[in-house]
Amino acid sequence: MAITVKSPAASSAGSGRRSGGAAKRRYHGVPAGMTWVLPGFVMAVGVIYFCIGYTGYVSLLPWNWRPPKEEVVEGLGNFARAFSTPLFWECLKHTLIFFIAVYLVQTVMGIVFAAIMHSRVYCSVIFKILIFVPVVVAPAIMSPVHRRVFAVDGPLNWILAHLGFLHADPTGKNPAWNGWFQWVLDHIGLSSVSPNWIQPSTALWVVIGIQIWSSIGMAFILFFAAMGQIDPEVLEAARIDGAGNIRVLVSVIIPQLKPTIVSLAVLNAITALKLFDYPYLVTTGGPANASQFLGTYIYSEMFEKGGRFGYAASMSMLLLVLAIGVSIIMTVMSRERKPEEVKV
């Protein structure tokens, strides 16, 4: 099916060329189609390009410009301002860490879950539902729950206490690591990590953990579909040659998942750049900007610091350029790799 797993670059570009050629051959008799395309075109291109243009214009206005005020074009000062603000680079750094961490865990766990669910485990439907529900439920609805999970007296610390990592005090308000675990943390350079999760040294990792929770299901579904298309005879042949389960997974299955692994990278990069809901609602970008991302930073400049729309618009434009740049680079990269993948 076209809507399951298929490389976007290949399908869209290839089909475009195909139908273009076909149309030229039989131009007579084919009815004109502009009126069919126009409504969607106006809706998408009209609104989106207008917004890009308008935001681009606002980014040239004074940094503290607000909607009703007089408009005087000032120039590129806002961009210089963004580049010279450490927090802007800090946000990019968080975005990069977030992308790498989420992408790695999501890919590995997605493949593991997909492989398990393709084997004959009991109750696989229930597992599948539990893994996929976090993908479906709105981040904004789940965020108070996550705040609760990571609270000092929340379930996470409860579990850690029962596993022996935590020395929980009776009130539950001031948990501390047990001696041995503190020793381990000290010796692997993580002594600043404390069971008070929403604090500068761990807040970013809380956001990352939540995103992993809510996106493994997506990777799982994609890998599950991709594995379903692997020819069973290939697996059979590998088994006859004496390959064990792990060997089959690493040497036969994973190479065939490459297109999915690449498109997950694009998806994750875009998600990381656009990220807003979780950091805004769970940690409000803090404490001390420790989990600030571009989305939350831009939002706070607009609505929480008295309306710095000009400055916010310049960062929005930079974000747009980054998002388009990343998706073009990744699409081109995946297209270049195409020929070897087919051979596998």
Binding site: Y49, L294, M302, A312
Partner: peptide, 26 residues
């Protein structure tokens, strides 16, 4: 259907594919 230079329109539309929401706010 028949549209003159349809790929131009199509790619103009695809240019709007990855829009961060913050760009739309103002």
């Amino acid at each position: 259907l028949r549209i003159r230079s349809k790929e131009v329109y199509f790619w103009l539309m695809m240019g709007a594919l990855t829009m961060p929401e913050v760009v739309l706010l103002t």
